[in-house]
Amino acid sequence: MQSQCIFATQTPVGPPVEIIRHSFSANAKKTGKRVSLVTGLHGDELEGLYICHRLMGILKEREAQNALQGEVHVYPAANPQALDSGTRLWPFFSVDINRTFGENNTHSLATDLSKALLADLKSNSDLVVDFHASNLQLMELPQIRIIKDFEKKLVPLAQLCNVDLIWVHPHADIFESTLGTNLNQAKIPTLVIEAGICLRINKTYCEQIILGILNLLEQTGTLQCTEPRTDIKNPKLLQPHQVAMVQSPNAGLFVKSVEIGQALQKGDKIGDLIDSSQKQKEIIAPCSGLLFTLREYPTTGQGAPLARIAIEETS
């Protein structure tokens, strides 16, 4: 393993802020792809951090066994100060790094960081995986979200990653300043994995994704394949019309009655919403299907998402 600092800035009080790339490479002739794994753009999303930690351990062993056929680059902490303080944003600047990518931003330390990261990924990757957990409010089943424009290229790769579902959704302007969109626009296929909830580690989900990434590395020829994996999930492929979102009809406290990953029937109770006048309203599933997003943080505003359901196709 070789480690290289790709961005550094001195802080006023002590050690510098550094973004480190750890690289694992084939000793002999490289025939496989160069795959990059990025995590920690949002400092409160810790699943990716754990996944990368585990993968780095495995990759070290595999590198020693000469099992690498390509290159794997791991960027385990893309926003170090946010990770240190457990915040989504880079705390000193209140900036969401994943809204600063793109060629024409004005000067700030945050945009300098995003430029350095984007440039390094572009010059070292044939394929990128960007790990995210959900925000403070929602728990997500392991999934890969793909913008419709990149569906053809990304879905076959996403199917290798052992996630529960692949959600193809329409493009929105807000995505244009994200790492994933910028890399995909630069024709470097980039998968954005979303799993769990922020500030926590769901070990089951992490193990599931670790297996998926190893499978991805093997299937893309980056890592030698010892024997075919039989335990890889066949994810549900969802088009935009196959996702039902349940939004909160009012502000209040949402108390869930179900668990994520459950198969719901139309009319099933998802939970109760207690509003400020102490009125309680049942939240009901509008359709049958797989519950893949569920609100964990009870306080909710009007219009906030409470659940997402992968709509079950009726024959």
Binding site: R99, T100, F101, G102, N104, N105, T106, D173, I174, E176, S177, N182
Partner: peptide, 10 residues
């Protein structure tokens, strides 16, 4: 005049 940036669209 501001530099155009992807984030401006929103």
């Amino acid at each position: 005049q501001l530099k155009p940036s992807p984030a401006h669209k929103v």
